[in-house]
Design a protein around this nucleic acid. Sequence first.
RNA 1: GGCCCCGUAGUCCAACGGCAGAGACAGGCGACUUAAAAUCGCUACAGUGUCGGUUCGAGUCCGACCGGGGCCA
Length: 876
Amino acid sequence: MTSERYNAREAEPKWQRVWEERELFRTRNDDPRPKYYVLEMFPYPSGRIHMGHVRNYAMGDVVARYKRARGFNVLHPMGWDAFGMPAENAAMANKVHPATWTYANIATMRSQLKSMGLSLDWHREIATCDPSYYKHQQRLFLDFMAAGLVDRKTAKVNWDPVDHTVLANEQVIDGRGWRSGAVVEQRELTQWFFKITDFAQELHDALDQLDRWPEKVRLMQRNWIGRSEGLMVRFALDSKTSPGGERELEIYTTRPDTLFGAKFLAIAPDHPLARATAAGNADLAAFIEECKRTGTAQEAIDKAEKKGFDTGIRARHPFDPAWELPVYVANFILMEYGTGAIFGCPAHDQRDLDFVNRYGLGNTPVVCPPDIAPEAFVVTDVAYDGDGRMINSRFLDGMTIAEAKEEVARRLESESVDGRPVGTRKVNFRLRDWGVSRQRYWGCPIPIIHCDSCGVVPVPKADLPVKLPEDVSFDLPGNPLDRHPTWKAVDCPQCGRAARRETDTMDTFVDSSWYYSRFTDPWLDEAPTDRAVVDHWLPVDQYIGGIEHAILHLLYSRFYTRAMRAAGHVGLDEPFRGLFTQGMVVHETYKGPDGAWVSPAEIRIEADGAERRATLLSSGEPVEIGGIEKMSKSKRNTVDPDDIIGTFGADTARWFMLSDSPPERDVIWTEEGVQGASRFVQRLWRLTGEIARVAGPVGAEAPATFTTEALAIRKAAHRALIRTEEDVERLRFNRCVAHAYELANALSAAIGAVTDDTDRDDLAFAFREAGEVLIQIVAPMMPHLAEECWLALGHTRLVADQPWPAADRALVVEDEITLPVQINGKKRADVTVSRTASSAEVEAAVMQLEAVQRALEGRPVRKFVVVPGRIVNVVV
RNA sequence: GGCCCCGUAGUCCAACGGCAGAGACAGGCGACUUAAAAUCGCUACAGUGUCGGUUCGAGUCCGACCGGGGCCA
């Protein structure tokens, strides 16, 4: 029966149907077995799945199937991050409603995912654009409001002029919108905010506990939160010089130690003092206008030339009333950071140094590097921000930076002006509150009503969900909700008078900040979560997704879990116990004779020795082979998972995505690699047939004794089993693949040695055992092929429903071991001793070796190193 | 500019501080075949980016540098 080729196209849908009919992957919340929650980041329904999805979901599926076999009650759900701009773009381009477009895409992608044979519980499928989901998101918004975690304030926002919407700072990359790529403008708008900064310290500190997260991601989040310890310092102003007789200016600094190196104070262009001064100074007003045009993105500010405008205001040094400092308005000071005012110490801050060098204010070094004499230390173009001892700083001289910081803080804290201390210690964060208002249609409506008499009124919970209207048009720019003829009109829930709905919808990152909680009980209608259920399932034991979400999605989710805890919807802080960020799928690029990108499907590659040449299939013209880059539509170097699954089958695609590269690194998609994976599928199928021929019956008793050949087969099987267990646990799937190859190679060789008259119980048992182990370690990776092989081995039960085989560790322990023998660290011989031999016995055996005696040439042994079970080193 | 990750056969990658090779791809030779594909067997190929240090012993640890990538500025 197994002489034919394995036909994935027939077998895969067949097994998918069997799994579905038996509801094998349906997870019950009341299952008493220990829980395991494995989750891959849910996809945006863009239209079709891509190879990145295949890699991501193949990895998650290996973990899910493995844990299921190990006796866990596994939760492995799937859903759709279904709100967002592309649906509206499609609506504008093709006159199709966003909902129609989105649900059509979901249908396509669902069937694509199903063709991958993933062990998902589709009963729990959710789409964030469905009112049954966003109803609870609106409820959460209201609960967060009640818990004091929602704010409405006027803020300078990043405005995307193409998408006509506001973007969070995190969504602005290099001064451009993360989705549209348009240069972002600054606008003042009243916006809704989640007070993520309330948790800044906690989000920062808890990173230390996330020991199953990649260090890289924790570091990125730590940088993003940007905790810094500093000092607020009130500088006295000469009120004769200030526009309204202001008497002080409060600044924030993280370097109070450099206070004696101060050369100027600088305030942000939109600082109140700057505005007040500009009112009577047209030149300054013009300068402030100019600053606004450069934008406030950190990137733009860092690249822009450091410019300032002397306000004429003079400040006094806090330690020396006679020391006067000029106050500038400077384009590199942000109102949003600290107090929007700083003191400049040019010798130790590059931006300040660039500034003084432009305006001729000079610099005084106050921190001297350890290996330079203080009088020889001069700063010209490069600021010194390293360690050292204080100089030119009066009472601070000779101190370390840390000591000086402490001393300045101590003195200024105890000094009092107008009944308040001059200096106050302050922990500052770079993290800003999360602006969630978006002026778009295809998002979760913010459940708020604006009433002329009552102000901002929450929609009563009984009235949720606030549903999106269906009759909308996209032929004009701006927000369709805002210009809808009737949707906005609503009576105020408090006074009953005519009022207006909030027309902003929520940032789609809100949708993905709690979906993992909803998966635990997606049927629940009366609340977002059932506390008993959600607390049982969370945290997610293993979360798998792309590194591109290292900051935004993961930080928002960590905040959201805390906010949900505050509102009583979950009982924990950290949603993701284990996080894994997988690498990208990359592919060669090709350029045709006209310089345009050509897709891999349009070319033929010929190898002539080491030379590889590509030609166009259509015309035979030469094609230039370019660099290996992330698969993207613009470079046309994508491979469609449908094509691969249609040609080779899902198992081949999954196997190749897991083999070769370690999962956290990029994997190069190559035609040869797919061919290789496909060959292994066929080879495993043939091998299974051969094993079935020589294997003993299912469930046979183990013979009392085994011959050397049989024992060798058993050892190979159990070694592969043990290593696969270790490597699945550590998500090293490329090694799991290698173990399967190794065992298959060993079994092929063993079967080759079997002759027709071999008829021995021990060999038959060993072949059955090893064959079953091979299929079972392959099963999480290639589940369809494994079912077919399992059947061929005479089983009636599904391999997907089979407990993981028990590894016999005693089998892989050798009684006799062969140790390499080194002389002065170079290998010279081998010695075979009993596994339990003492060091003295090993030493005795080694000294008898002829090779050792020859190498010693009569010299005495200086040292004898025996590493038990590993190696022997003789030092002469 | 700072921090982090990665540099091992032609390629992708393995190797608790202990014999540099688990596995794959590509290559070469052979078997099967009228021939080819498929399949099977055999096989060459690196001393681990460079320089120094620690150690009985370094791909692995430490320092400096070179190259590639990432994050922050």
